[in-house]
Amino acid sequence: MRRWPVIVVAAAALGALSGAAAYQHIVPRQGEQKGSWQEIAWSFPRDGWPAGRAFRCRGASCGDGIEVYVRPKIGFCNCDRGVADDDEVDRVADVDLISEHFTPIQAGDVISVADMPGRSRAYDLKMTGGTRHAAIGIAVSRRCDLLVAVAHGKGNAVRVRREALALLGETEMTRWMMAAMEGR
């Protein structure tokens, strides 16, 4: 008989704790969210590199939607110079996985992602069916390893770049990128 009060108190405490945890992870109402990133499946066929992580953004700041694909390429970088020029970004940033028909819009920019130096470059993509997307190729390095990302969407290249870099700058993404670069 003495166990029942203990069981009731324990059940109430567990219920309260799980309710509090659920409340913290609730999705904001549509009007409250600027951009909402959701992890999606890596949609590309296997190649010489491991699959990475993929995300889709829907919301006010993302317009018609932006997708970002990120993965490490361990041992695939010039150990002395890192990502040295736009030609290297064209070669390594996985833009060709989205469309084989890509054209650089302009010269790239020097950037830093998670304290790794590199470059980004904007592209015009001709998608299947003839539609056009803007894309951003990103390649950063640490020692002899690369981290590459490609983002694309129907919006302009400036918006795609801003949103992709904001995602890559989030604390959780920075932690994952550093762990991935260390092979964990």
Results as ranks from 00 to 15, higher is better:
R132C: 00
V27C: 04
A12L: 04
I40R: 14
W176D: 09
A179H: 02
A134R: 01
E39I: 00
V8H: 05
V113A: 07
W4N: 02
S43M: 14
M181P: 03
M178E: 15
G118Y: 02
A16C: 09
R46K: 14
R132L: 12
G63N: 04
A11I: 08
V8C: 04
I111P: 14
D85A: 02
R81Y: 12
V140F: 08
G129H: 07
A54G: 08
N156M: 00
A84K: 13
G19K: 00
D94K: 02
R29G: 13
L125I: 05
V89T: 05
G65Y: 07
R184W: 13
I111R: 04
V27H: 08
W42M: 06
A157W: 04
E67Q: 13
M178V: 11
N156C: 06
R56Q: 14
M177D: 01
F76R: 07
C77M: 14
Y23C: 02
E88I: 04
A22T: 01
M178D: 15
D64L: 13
A10P: 00
F102A: 15
L125R: 06
T103F: 13
M178T: 15
H152G: 08
R91H: 10
G137H: 10
D87K: 06
R3D: 12
T174D: 11
D109Y: 05
Q24W: 11
H133N: 12
N156K: 07
L168N: 02
M127D: 01
W37P: 03
S36T: 02
I7N: 06
R161P: 10
D115N: 14
A16T: 13
R91A: 15
A164V: 01
G59E: 01
Q30I: 07
I105L: 12
P28W: 01
H101T: 11
A164R: 10
A11S: 06
N78L: 08
A12C: 06
S141T: 13
G75S: 05
A16D: 03
P28I: 06
D87P: 00
V140A: 11
L17E: 06
R71K: 03
A21C: 08
P45V: 05
S36H: 15
L165C: 04
S61G: 11
A151L: 11
M181I: 06
T128E: 14
R29W: 12
V92Q: 03
V110R: 15
S18C: 10
D47P: 04
K126A: 13
W176L: 05
D109S: 14
